[in-house]
Amino acid sequence: MAITGNSGIILTTVEEVLSWSRRNSLWPVSIGLACCAIEMMHTAASRFDTDRLGIIFRGSPRQADVLIVAGTVVNKVAPMLKLIYEQMPDPKWVISMGGCASGGGPFPTYSTLQGVDRIIPVDVYIPGCPPTPQALLWGIIQLQKKIKEKKEGKELKEIPIRVPTESKPIKQI
């Protein structure tokens, strides 16, 4: 944004305003899957207080634009998580919180999904088992940076995200 002179006029573009407002009012869906959800609650509670970053947890995916995948995603819950992701309005972002969501974590078993990026595209991965609230805040700030850079035309330098076109059958073969 640019301020010209002392008259208080702000000159900007629509994209800049949109990007600014989007990154400063990230509303996540309040979904907790496992241990990481406890740390997510701590991040939202009195000490770390995500409200000051404009983050307010919403009960409905229709009102949210960030999905924080907090915890182990098992095969049985994967189609339902995908459904919730699809219900969210665009633009939307996904934060994969913790080792289990990012890559299966310590559970290489028959029933665990080895990384949530196999069903939905992920923007930010946060390491840790479980990540501390500070780590989650770091992840959110990374996401804000990413949204800001995208506005400035830097999206081509990022890893291109392959968005699934067909949504109904998850089995691809």
Binding site: N75, K76, A78, P79, M80, L83, G103, Y110, S111, L113, Q114, G115, D117, R118, I119, I120, P121, V122, I159, P160, I161, R162, V163, P164, K168, P169, I170, K171, Q172, I173
Partner: peptide, 28 residues
């Protein structure tokens, strides 16, 4: 038995060493 690659993978360049085959996921 299911082919389920990472959606974050860069085209032709594997982002990390992992098995794209996965256990079956239920449908809705």
């Amino acid at each position: 038995d299911t082919y389920l690659p990472s959606l974050n993978e860069r085209d032709n360049i594997p982002s990390h060493d992992y098995d794209p085959y996965h256990t079956a996921i239920p449908t809705l």
